[in-house]
Nucleic acid binder design. Structure first.
Length: 423
RNA sequence: GGAGAGGUGGCUGAGUGGUCGAAAGCGGCGGUCUCGAAAACCGUUGUGGCGCUUGCGUCACCGUGGGUUCGAAUCCCACCCUCUCCGCCA
């Protein structure tokens, strides 16, 4: 969330940021009006509490001196009644402020292009060339059927559509990619590997910004008020919630594999065939906690770490800077990475790398001290997929397919797969 | 799931209705001493909100949320978490 003081003193800038992001500015108006009433009531009730503290001490002294304090007690009875009423009022305004605050998105960085939906996204980098074929490349679902790598029908039977049953080489490819990516990030890029819970509570979900806005896009367990994580960003970023770190702890780099769950209401239909859009998928995630002044450099290196995965696998990709209308709620700036899939003839998003600045840190209470005795400051948090599996698998299958329907295994994962070719 | 114990500041730990934002110890920081260090001694050392102002005032915070009371770390209720034992179990 944004700093209340900042919103109070820069309402116009916040409003413009929200408009650029297609956010409903009603939340800003709600905040501003609740904030004003809140401060008015707060000043009043604080005065009464000061009086009560004062007289209470006097009562205590009188009692010890065995004097009669009943007049003071009687007076304070009334004051306490007023405090009770005012406290309730303060709480109402506070709740209003808080819920409005939780719906105000991060401010897009000034380098982010203004645009609605994704029409303002800019390709800022390309690597490799979309592969040319001297035969008609098949989509991955045909290859998967031929090679027995994925059983879409039985996955749907077990759970529902969008839940994938990987079989034989399909299952092993999934595991090999996860292992290789984790090894790459830990050994080459300096990340610490962790394995987090897959369920997270409401507090954690609010900390990273999924709640309240996206509560109903998530699978949830109402009995326990728990949620299946849509990304390990949620759990990784909450590792240090409500803590004050030492400056020397930073930067902290975490990487984790996790399954990810997304309900995405109304997802069925076009562009959802095969592995393109599923409800449960695997992903290796990267999260950074950094000094505020370093976060923009850290976004570049984070994105390069994700690109290294694609380059290692020899997959042509492009990097996009997302526009204000396409950027996520918590992000100040986001790069998407897309890889070319010749079978379906599409660029597929496999990674989204974001600098969330202090937005999540403020929500989740993640701070650090520059030195002994210094005031705590909010860290900056970043997250990026490194990378998401299903579309990566699509691109590998479709790019490395041979005329006979077999698939050459990219060199970097051959030792994990134990084979050079899937047939 | 059942029974019990417990959650207090960076840590250990005292505090069962009023002078308690909280003893004491450890740790940290500053100083005295010393060529320097250690020891010893002295001082200092939580977070956030609001208001005026850059220094002060004030409020809140002892797991979380309610309640009782003139007054709650302390009493009552609910919930969460940790530990021990039992049950179940990969």
């Amino acid at each position: 969330m944004l700093e209340p003081k900042f919103i109070r003193t820069n309402p116009d800038a916040v409003r413009q940021g929200m408009i650029n992001q297609k956010s409903d500015t009603i939340h800003l108006d709600d905040f501003l009006s609740a904030d004003e009433s809140w401060r008015k009531a707060l000043i009043e009730v604080d005065k009464l509490k000061a009086l009560r503290n004062d007289v209470s001490e006097k009562i205590s002294q009188m009692k010890r001196a065995k004097e009669d304090a009943s007049a003071e007690i009687e007076r304070m009875r009334e004051v306490s009644e007023q405090i009770k009423v005012l406290d309730a009022e303060v709480k109402v305004f506070e709740d209003k402020m808080q819920s409005a605050l939780l719906m105000i998105p991060n401010m897009p960085d000034s380098s982010v292009p203004v645009g609605f939906n994704d029409e303002g996204n800019i390709v800022v980098k390309t690597w490799g060339e979309p592969k040319e074929f001297d035969f008609q490349p098949l989509p991955h679902w045909d290859l998967a059927a031929k090679l027995g790598m994925i059983d879409f029908e039985r996955g749907a039977k077990i759970t529902g559509s969008g839940f994938i049953l990987y079989t034989k080489w399909g299952a092993k490819l999934e595991r090999s990619l996860i292992n290789w990516m984790l090894d790459l990030h830990t050994s080459k890029h300096g990340y610490t590997e962790v394995f987090t819970p897959i369920l997270a509570n409401r507090n954690s979900m609010t900390g990273t910004g999924q709640i309240p806005k996206l509560e109903f896009d998530m699978y949830r367990l109402p009995e326990d008020d728990l949620f299946l994580i849509p990304t390990a960003e949620t759990t990784l970023t909450n590792i240090y919630s409500q803590e004050i770190l030492d400056s020397s702890d930073l930067p902290i780099y975490f990487t984790a594999y996790s399954p990810c769950f997304r309900r995405e209401a109304g997802a069925a239909g076009k562009d959802t065939r095969g592995l393109l859009r599923v409800h449960e998928f695997n992903k290796v995630e990267m999260v950074k906690y950094v000094h505020p002044e370093k976060s923009w450099d850290e976004l570049e290196s984070l994105t390069e770490n994700a690109e290294d995965v694609l380059e290692g696998l020899g997959l042509a990709y492009r990097r996009l800077t997302l526009d204000t209308g396409d950027i996520s709620f918590a992000s100040a700036k986001t790069y998407d990475l897309e890889i070319w899939a010749p079978g379906v003839g599409k660029w597929l998003e496999v990674s989204s790398c974001s600098n969330c600045t202090d937005f999540q840190a403020r929500r989740a209470g993640i701070r650090f001290r520059r030195e002994q005795g210094a005031k705590p400051e909010f860290v900056h948090t970043l997250n990026g997929s490194g990378v998401a599996l299903p579309r990566l698998v699509v691109a590998i299958m479709e790019n490395y397919q041979q005329p006979d329907g077999s698939i050459i295994v990219p060199e970097v994962i051959r030792s994990y797969m134990g084979t050079d070719v899937i047939r």
